[in-house]
Design a protein around this nucleic acid. Structure first.
Lengths: 264, 264
DNA sequence: TAGTGGTCTAGACCACATA
DNA sequence: ATGTGGTCTAGACCACTAC
């Protein structure tokens, strides 16, 4: 069988939404096409977060390619943290819940002490209501100015010390009916709640970090002074297809915590 | 040929310096062993930064394994940025020089403007001399308190604006004879100079970030005020075998720049 | 045209988990 | 005992680069 023609019988239109870059005649290796098809199934919710996806052999049969090709496709998905392989058990859809790697996107760590003790952060929801998106928030979320968004403001405390003040904006259309109760009482990461309650899987994020001083109101919320410098962390969180689904603007108190980053 | 026995004829002692974790009888896949051998050659300087390493076929013949096994070993080295593959040309030892990805470890980006215009940063060396390592610097660099280290203090300016104040500590034994002239006048990243002049390849780094206020002296150097919050970035840079070879403590002015980070 | 890395296949066997 | 992913091999062909 000639390569690169196998999947043209598949009823999926050639939606190559990679980027706006002009590509050469769009050569795409077979395993990339397979990866795209698996991605579509993930997006469509055929397999839900935490669930087992079909074995490599099954997928190979389904797509009429060799197991090795499916393997390479899954390898890339695993490298992007979209699925998780477990030897002897199978391949699972990655979830923000029930891993030891909870709080994947939170890089703030205590200066001393064992591990991510953040699991038991106290959440204080100060606000949770719909509003109209300002121009810059709309732009970042890919909405139009004035579109409805949900605004959440909360304080996270570790060991009784207020440490993170966060403003979160979410598109109302997707997170319809989100309440302060949900934000406060869901056991586990907020992103796990988004998966369970709204079927939204956050797969990656980008952060811009600065040093700032809080205004008096912010300083009060964090029980600190207006002369205590804070980390300003703006996070844009993306779901499938590089679609932005959340904007967070956080202020981190770094007296006894630090933001950790590994470079390679 | 039974797998996992192929390389025992090689004159390399089983230096498995992975971690202090107790491992099960130390099963190691063939490709990992190959990876280790290639790594040893990189460390030993058999192939220098920027140079072409032997083709997959040659390495396969040398190690008496299949090309596919060598490929998997190189795949991992490429994923760790230790080598760079270029289709049709070969596999090259990654260098901090002569890439478009210069300044690999510098995450500070201008808020506006095209790309990493940082290439033409002005470097102002304020200090470069040997000193005795304090307890905490010695600990971080894996030295003993009082061992000789070279201390460099410099200011980086972008477009005429002082933006980064950095203190750098390096083990004197390795960077013997480093001068302020070298630090100031080498064209290209400092890490490229370390490769060329001292044969030290920095392969990864870890950063701890906080928000701080400068003291009056630091504020003067950055031509700012003592009430302007700054990013404090402590970077430990590692060469092969997870050996720490540099400590940097930087203060970043984030008025018109931000620290960027991608999470996945 | 020759050589490189990149893709694809097929089959064998190993390690791990579960029943 | 069975099924999963993990490793290893061998060979074929493709795409890119250089000569």
């Amino acid at each position: 069988m000639p390569p690169n023609t196998a999947l043209l019988t598949d009823p999926s239109p050639p939606l190559r939404s990679d980027s706006a870059v002009v590509q050469t005649p769009a050569f795409s290796p077979l395993y990339q096409q397979i990866k795209g098809l698996i991605l579509q199934s993930l997006q469509a919710g055929e397999w839900k977060p935490g669930e087992l996806i079909p074995s490599e052999m099954e997928l190979a049969a389904r797509f009429k390619v060799s197991q090795g090709t499916v393997r390479k496709a899954i390898d890339e998905l695993a490298a992007e943290n979209l699925v998780t392989r477990r030897q002897g058990k199978g391949t699972f859809v990655t979830t923000h819940n029930e891993e030891q790697v909870q709080y994947r996107f939170l890089q703030l760590h205590p200066d001393v002490g064992q591990q991510q003790d953040e699991g038991r952060a106290q959440r204080n929801i100060m606000e949770c209501r719909r509003m109209r998106a300002s121009a810059d928030i709309a732009r970042i979320l890919g909405l139009r100015t004035g579109d409805s968004v949900i605004h959440v403001r909360r304080v996270l405390s570790f060991g009784g010390t207020p440490t993170i003040l966060e403003d979160i904006w979410l598109p109302s259309q997707v997170f319809k009916g989100l309440t302060a109760q949900q934000m406060a009482h869901y056991p586990g990461p907020t992103y796990a709640m988004f998966e369970m309650e709204y079927g939204v899987r956050m797969v990656r994020a980008e952060e811009k970090i600065r040093a700032v001083l809080p205004d008096t109101q912010q300083a009060q919320w964090l029980k600190t002074t207006a002369t205590t410098p804070l980390l300003s962390v703006e996070r844009v969180t993306y779901t499938y297809n590089d679609k932005p689904m959340e904007l967070r603007r956080g202020l981190y108190l770094t007296d006894s915590h630090h933001y950790r980053n590994a470079l390679s």
